[in-house]
């Protein structure tokens, strides 16, 4: 890993051991999230992608080593202070029964609120803007239960945006969406990246990662196998090494970014 980058990145992991209970997922893991990047973490199932994201958001405390945020161990901050700097869109968020869109987005303001200071002018503006940015303002009075999957995911992004953090972590945000809504959401992330957010997303689709990410981190067995620009990371050798998939990497005809074409059977070929 490049030492220089680790020194300056606002959010990085220093030789951390991260896991659940007694099951260690990553040992001596060091990785930095370049500032103002759209970093995408890729890798096969159970390679430690989401675990890394949980470590970066302080949901999991490393049993050794540390996660550093703005020069200090992330576990040394007050929890609301972390929440004002790093936001997370978790995979498992639940909408309470009967909640409206605006109410859900407003929940993102929690780190700024106190017992008697629950809904300031600043809160209202942040919620209005987050809904604007994700184009859910028209839905604001609707019940979240009644929305389509794509709309609902934009509402969750709005909630994370209302939290007003420079760094935003996204855990498999496009899962369960159809292809059009996946692209729509990825373009929304691209827009957020352009206005200055540092984004870290776990994505399953390598082609999406290569097209929208500016920095890729490829993981296998809890370790970082490669990182760099999509062109550096998405190569036929690396895809075979990390995913065990033989493939051809060709330029995406629209964006020119690397695109993975599997070398498996075609539908006419029979199993040998």
């Amino acid at each position: 890993m490049s030492g220089a980058m680790t020194d300056i990145a606002r959010l990085h992991v220093e030789s951390a051991t991260i896991g659940y209970d007694k099951r260690i997922i990553s040992e001596h893991l060091s990785v930095a999230i370049p500032d103002e990047s759209f970093t995408v973490i890729v890798g096969p199932n159970a390679c430690g992608k989401s675990t890394l994201l949980r470590g970066l958001s302080r949901l999991l405390k490393p049993s050794a080593g540390q996660v550093v945020l703005d020069g200090a161990d992330i576990s040394s901050y007050k929890s609301k202070e972390v929440a004002r700097r790093v936001g997370l869109l978790p995979q498992t968020a639940l909408a309470p029964d009967g909640i409206t869109v605006a109410d859900l987005v407003a929940r993102g303001r929690y780190p700024y609120q106190g017992f008697v200071r629950q809904w300031t002018e600043a809160d209202e503006q942040a919620v209005a803007r987050a809904m604007n940015q994700t184009a859910v303002t028209e839905l604001s009075g609707r019940l979240v239960d009644e929305l389509s999957g794509g709309q609902r995911q934009r509402v969750w992004v709005a909630m994370a945006l209302a939290q007003h953090t420079d760094i935003l972590l996204l855990d498999e945000p496009t899962t369960f969406l159809d292809i059009a809504h996946q692209i729509e959401l990825l373009e929304l992330f691209t827009d957020l990246h352009h206005v200055g957010h540092t984004l870290v997303a776990v994505l399953h689709d390598l082609n999406h990662a290569a097209r929208y990410g500016t920095h890729l981190i490829a993981m296998k067995d809890g370790q970082v196998v490669a990182e760099g620009t999509p062109e550096e990371v998405v190569t036929a050798e690396l895809v075979e090494e990390v995913f065990g998939l033989r493939c051809l990497v060709v330029p995406d005809p629209v964006a020119g970014t690397p695109q993975v074409v599997p070398l498996g059977r075609t539908r006419k070929e029979k199993a040998v």
Binding site: R58, K78, S79, T92, A93
Partner: peptide, 11 residues
Amino acid sequence: ELGDDAAASQG
């Protein structure tokens, strides 16, 4: 009520 992860990430 938003789930443990969401709540924790909000402080």
